[in-house]
Amino acid sequence: MRIWKRKNAEDEGIDNLSMGPLELDLALERADQLEMARLVKTLVDEQPSLTWRSALNERLRSVDQTQRRRRGTAWVWRAGVALGLAASVLVGFLIWPVAGTVQVPSGAVESGLIRAFREEVAANEVAGAGATPLELDQNGGESLAPDQAYEDTDAEPT
């Protein structure tokens, strides 16, 4: 019990050394301090036995195998997850309900815009790029009703 107390007291004293940095540097270079350093330096290290080394090699091999197995499993797992995600996205695109058409009240500005757009698309499909009947109308050309605009002009008049 008291041994523990003594250890704690020693630990508390460690960082409370009343010396300035310069003083401490000088103290560490004192002959008695260097003598202690020399004594510690002369201690001999025991070399591990071949049995110990062999056991370490076995453990390293085992660690290596475990890591490789984990890497392999992780690769398969990641590939599986990626495939699953790709399949989900594909299915989502195919099955996901397309947003319904919006009903626009007749006579509104929107319905006029839609009608103009449809007419332009129809004109493009028949005559290709160029002035539309509406544009001709705006430029002072011969006014044609939208349903007459695409009639064959070479036909004999009835």
Binding site: I14, D15, Q33, E35, V40
Partner: peptide, 13 residues
Amino acid sequence: VKSRLFLARVHLQ
């Protein structure tokens, strides 16, 4: 580190 080293050597001494 320095203060611990100093105290360790004192202890050893």
